[in-house]
Write a protein that binds this DNA or RNA. Structure first.
Lengths: 218, 218
DNA sequence: GCGGCAAAACTTACACCGCTAGTTTAAGGG
DNA sequence: CCCTTAAACTAGCGGTGTAAGTTTTGCCGC
């Protein structure tokens, strides 16, 4: 089957299908042949549109990151902007949890990740944070969000109470975590984010100056 | 070459060699055949000692997690214990950064991870935190530590200034991040951890009661 | 209109992957 | 001493990413 009348593949179509496949079956199940099959095509054909498998994954990761909203840094005080950004970031990642392990490994050359870092850094510097501090804050929040989307603390537990009861006295009810997975993860995220922002507000007051444009809501 | 006079493989030897191999060449380079070659053996021989490749990786991950020190929860106030634990946790992970993406995916059945979770949870509950809060705090800190060890914000940047200058105005000096990688990551971690603990201290005073045994150091 | 070139699919193939099955020999217990 | 078990082996299956070369189509310039 040679070149068809109308191309069957597009970068966009490949990325969309790859995203759906990863969402549905996980990263390990994502292979070039499997993806090609999903597209009604033969595997190597993908290489007419992407140079490597990683390039496809980068495109998927970039699309996911592109959904993050950083507009708050242009309109709100820095605390509110950080909060909005962190939640938007988390939502974007948890919408496609299976790609997170790949995505989490450095902003690299991915345009959307760089644009995001740029917006955050710029917003914090504009708010009065020293550049080095702005870098640290952006990184720290990134750690927290990525960790929360990746680790899914609760998901790791297993439905076998006796596994825990014997050896881990305090985790007697750990198996229950699996039931309330989402609420545990979201609760931990909300608590941690509030604590982080609270601490940053105090740090701001101490080192930058009295809180003016910063109106902490927590 | 049949059964040798003296076994050439041990679970311990396999785990140690696997750890060294992953440290030296990264997760993708870690294959059963490659590991076997490193051990002077033929690949399938590993399956006399481990059922699957993942079981080997779990053992490596468990060894890494086992190096985390949670003793502070038995002797110090909860804030100091959390701080010590978080730093120890981070040191354990950054000592073997290549295994982190695997390790980060849920505490699962790995004994060391469960023991760690148990110690943290128990310590927080003993300090007066409500159980649900204790779970959230442990998870939040885990997110932060795992994210910091995984993402290595700075490592992601590339040594090509012109890549950033054009499109990301605030990241003009982003390529310099690669130079100061370790200090940026550690600084971000220190800042974030202090902010988190500061916020948790405030939360404790507000919801649990006046700070008594808690003696925040930040 | 037509020749030629680029595009986009194809087939084939390589080296590697995790893992299974069956084989061989040595070690150790009854 | 036999017999089970352990621990290595070889062979091989189905799958992986990707390189190379083939074929047909669409399109652009003459």
């Amino acid at each position: 089957m040679p070149r068809p009348r109308q191309p069957r593949l597009t970068r966009q179509l490949i990325v969309d299908t790859a995203t759906a496949l990863i969402d549905a079956e996980g990263l390990p199940a994502f292979s070039t042949r499997r993806l090609a099959a999903e597209l009604g095509v033969r595997g190597p054909s993908l290489y007419n549109h992407f140079a490597t498998k990683d390039e496809i994954l980068d495109a998927v990761a970039d699309t996911v990151t592109g959904a993050v909203d950083t507009s708050g840094f242009a309109s709100r005080d820095w605390v509110a902007a950080l909060r909005d950004w962190a939640w938007s970031y988390r939502r974007a990642l948890t919408a496609h949890p299976n790609i997170v392990p790949y995505l989490a490994q450095g902003p690299g050359r991915r345009p959307a990740a760089l644009a995001m870092a740029d917006a955050v850094y710029g917003g914090l510097v504009r708010a009065g944070w020293p550049p080095a501090r702005a870098t640290h804050i952006g990184a720290a929040l990134r750690y927290f969000v990525a960790g929360s989307a990746l680790g899914s603390f609760a998901r790791g537990f297993v439905e076998e109470p006796e596994l825990y009861a014997a050896h881990y006295p305090h985790l007697r009810d750990a198996h229950r975590l699996a039931e309330h997975q989402q609420s545990v993860d979201e609760g931990a995220f909300a608590l941690g984010l509030d604590a982080l922002l609270h601490g940053l507000t105090a740090e701001y007051a101490r080192t930058v100056g009295p809180v003016e444009s910063a109106r902490p809501s927590g």
